[in-house]
Design a protein around this nucleic acid. Structure first.
Lengths: 240, 240
DNA sequence: AAAACAATCTAGCGATTGTTAGAGTGAAAG
DNA sequence: CTTTCACTCTAACAATCGCTAGATTGTTTT
């Protein structure tokens, strides 16, 4: 028996992960899931695709074991199957940004240049947030904030920002973040804040990038809503 | 203008990298290139595929900007376009190993259980190699050793191991490594050494894994052979 | 100039993939 | 029980991909 016969199977298995990462829609779904557990409907809405198409892509991700499911009543919640999946997404995006000039150009065209975040600037931001020198706001939907957020960050969803402006100190420097470098919500928030006279800027980090750089995130203790969802594993079998 | 129209293009660009990683053959080529610059012919031979097929796969990798080319006379040398590409390969393989049980089973069936390498055991191995407590041998082809190898490692290609046994101290513990966890050369070396009465075991690390864990590698100063190759960039343009 | 050689290009094939749309499932609400 | 709702499954299409094999390009050797 030749060893190479089975050796190529090793690469085939790894390529299953690669295949899962080879579709733009699936990458978008992974980034959304990196913000926390979501239902198929939510994912479809946020990625602006048909729910049936989202379901098909999620199936592909599930078969590559990059996501897991959990039924909660009528809903099925998807989540990344580990922090390493988020790290892989960040790693993939970083390599793309490093080597694909077209991507850098497209990014520069659509988002404001964020503060580059080296490990030192991350540490100093953390220190300034702790001391209260700056106010870090998380402009993602509240559910995503609750699933995990940067330390000392306050939830201030973009959709509610305008009517909650009174909650923000007028004299303090504000730092906004959202889902990551590809997300435009922090840009939008900064635009609005500056227009109203605030000193605001954004950072490109999201929770995944923060985690990938080795820093900790804060999590609300999960509040069991109403009488608690029944948790059951589904999709335990492989495809026939 | 909707922002999502262009936002999906960002994911499309990243998915170009994902597509490049979605083929087992291309992954094998990446692992081979992580051992150092190689010609198309060498890559085809080592991956046991037709040179024309190798060329096609290398083209796909080149278009994803994961590899670069350099003409040296009649030959064209391919290399990874950065250390981050090697790290990405390691990252991808680790996620696959973590989540795909089938891969772990296949690995266990074909290779001996290697010493698990945590950062502490890497550091202690390095210390023992420095002090001479163990002899670390690199059983890859000599060209790959020259392109970069673990600190204090001695080159001892598998093909020459048997006739160079006299060079090895009979009383010292020997640690063998090769291209990485998927490579069988270190298994083969350990088998041979133990058969001849040596105390030998393997580690799963290759140069990429060592680098990815943040440790340095040693490189021979590149010796310009004969009158020096003329170095020219080729394939500067994109596909038409 | 001709021959040898490394590598790429091209054409063609079967298989796989992304997407759409309709039908079906299983849990909860009426 | 029936209806509603979230989601999955199935069929079907065009588009793309992996591979093979023949022809071609560009460089070195003779």
């Amino acid at each position: 028996m030749k060893p190479n016969i089975t050796k190529s199977q090793l690469y085939e298995h790894v390529s299953r992960i690669g295949k899962a990462l080879s579709s733009p829609k699936r990458l978008e779904l992974i980034e959304l899931l990196a913000q926390g557990e979501k239902t198929v409907e939510t994912l479809a809405a946020q990625a602006r695709i048909d729910m049936r198409l989202a379901s098909a892509h999620l199936r592909a991700l599930r078969e590559a074991r990059l996501v897991e499911t959990r039924r909660a009543g009528k809903f099925i919640n998807y989540r990344l199957s580990g922090e390493d999946v988020g790290r892989l997404w960040v790693n993939l995006r970083e390599v793309a940004e490093e080597h694909l000039v077209e991507l850098r150009i497209a990014l520069a065209q659509m988002t404001a240049a964020p503060d580059a975040l080296s490990s030192e600037s991350r540490a100093s931001l953390l220190a300034k947030a702790r001391s209260g020198d700056v106010l870090v706001i998380d402009v993602r939907p509240a559910a995503e904030y609750e699933a995990g957020h940067l330390p000392f960050a306050r939830s201030m969803p973009l959709a509610e920002l305008e009517k909650r402006l009174a909650d923000l100190p007028a004299d303090k420097e504000i730092v906004a973040y959202c889902r990551g470098p590809f997300c435009l919500m922090s840009d939008e928030a900064v635009r609005l804040l500056r227009q109203r006279g605030y000193t605001a800027h954004k950072i490109s980090d999201g929770v995944s990038e923060w985690l990938a750089s080795g820093l900790p995130i804060e999590r609300q203790p999960p509040v069991p809503d109403t009488d608690g969802e029944q948790l059951r594993d589904i999709h335990s079998g492989e495809r026939p």
